[in-house]
């Protein structure tokens, strides 16, 4: 007769389902992006997912792990999806392939595969190509429909740019954050915001993309896939910084631009919440999220890069184990929580 340890029953949850739900929750964002910016991101996502699955399979084969067992956990696919969404829509194919395979091989499998990576794989891949190919990464953002309807590339145009090396110039333009960063050097904030790229609330395109990710994120919260701690702390951290330093309207970007442009919402709900590399204790999650929000603001406002989700997340990944060690919850029946790391042996 079967004698296994209790419990003998199990909830219907599984890692594959969790990952699949996260992937599905990105669909609103992907849909809006495709509608407003053309097929570039859609193609990127497909390409990144294919690359992620292929590299994952290859490395699993080399590591002599069972392919089916690990591929069906959907984590590689999720890494691919997140990278595809994060990369510029018109980035050449090799950038996507390079970023994805680096993420899977170096940031995930070499650390021992699922569950063992100290850094968010997608963001490691993103940071690699951002640092290595700054030109390709900043000139391949598509112009949103709202700004120039004729500039939105069709499917064939996107394919040509991404795979055949056609010039993206006809379709590309700076992102709002990028544009702001360039113009704020010579103009005041209010002057910058008069530029057509920032034309009107709910009119530009990036707002809609971020709102779509927010919607997806709320679904994740509702399904209890993620807890509220990290996204809320991150958005609050970012907002507080923005309000605190935003007293000088001529110097700094307004709160709405911080929250609803760039990768803010994608980062808050889909990237910072990657459980493997994030802090795990409830209070730790708050600190971790707030840290990302603050770093995000600091790098956007004072750093060399227009957006900074990848760097902010990676930097806080470093701190996650340390944060966990100092934020353990108080256990039932104990007066106070234990803090910090443990001495090797106490007698």
């Amino acid at each position: 007769m079967l004698t296994l340890s209790s419990p003998h029953t199990h909830g219907s949850n599984s890692t594959s389902k969790v990952m699949l739900t996260v992937i599905l929750a990105t669909l609103p964002g992907l849909l809006v992006t495709t509608l407003l910016f053309g097929y570039g991101t859609f193609i990127n996502v497909l390409l990144a997912v294919a690359t992620a699955m292929a590299t994952e399979a290859l490395v699993l084969k080399l590591r002599q792990r069972p392919l089916g067992f690990f591929l069906k956990d959907n984590t590689a696919a999720l890494t691919g999806v997140l990278l595809g969404l994060a990369l510029p829509p018109l980035a050449p194919w090799w950038i996507t392939v390079l970023a994805t395979s680096f993420a899977i091989v170096f940031a995930k499998q070499l650390y021992g595969g699922i569950g063992n990576n100290p850094f968010n794989p997608a963001m490691v891949g993103y940071a690699l190509v951002l640092v290595s190919f700054p030109l390709h990464m900043t000139t391949t953002w598509a112009v949103p429909m709202a700004v120039d309807n004729s500039a939105v590339p069709g499917l064939l145009d996107s394919v040509a740019v991404i795979f055949a090396g056609a010039s993206p110039d006809a379709f590309s333009g700076a992102t709002p954050l990028d544009a702001y960063k360039h113009m704020i050097d010579s103009q005041t904030s209010s002057e910058v915001l008069k530029n057509p790229i920032f034309s009107g609330w709910l009119n530009g395109g990036w707002e809609w993309v971020n709102l779509a990710y927010l919607a997806g994120g709320l679904v994740l919260l509702w399904r209890k896939i993620i807890s509220w701690h990290i996204p809320v702390a991150m958005l609050v951290g970012l907002s507080l910084c923005s309000l605190l330093f935003g007293w000088d309207e001529d110097m700094y970007a307004p709160l709405s631009l911080q929250l609803l442009s760039g990768a803010t919402m994608l980062g808050a709900f889909f990237i910072a919440t990657d459980p493997v590399s994030a802090a795990t204790t409830p209070r730790g999650k708050l600190i971790y999220g707030a840290g990302i929000g603050i770093l995000l603001y600091v790098i956007r406002a004072h750093g060399a890069y227009p957006d900074a989700v990848a760097f902010a997340v990676l930097l806080m990944n470093f701190a996650a184990p340390f944060i966990d060690a100092y934020t353990q919850p108080r256990t039932y029946g104990h007066k106070a929580a234990r803090r910090g790391l443990i001495a090797k042996s106490e007698k």
Binding site: P275, R330, Y332
Partner: peptide
């Protein structure tokens, strides 16, 4: 499967432990 440190166990623990740790 491998632990992905999702923290669902900590949310379910009636003793307020960190089960995954």
């Amino acid at each position: 499967m491998a632990c992905i440190r999702c923290g669902m166990c900590a949310e379910a623990c009636p003793a307020e432990l960190l089960p995954q740790q």
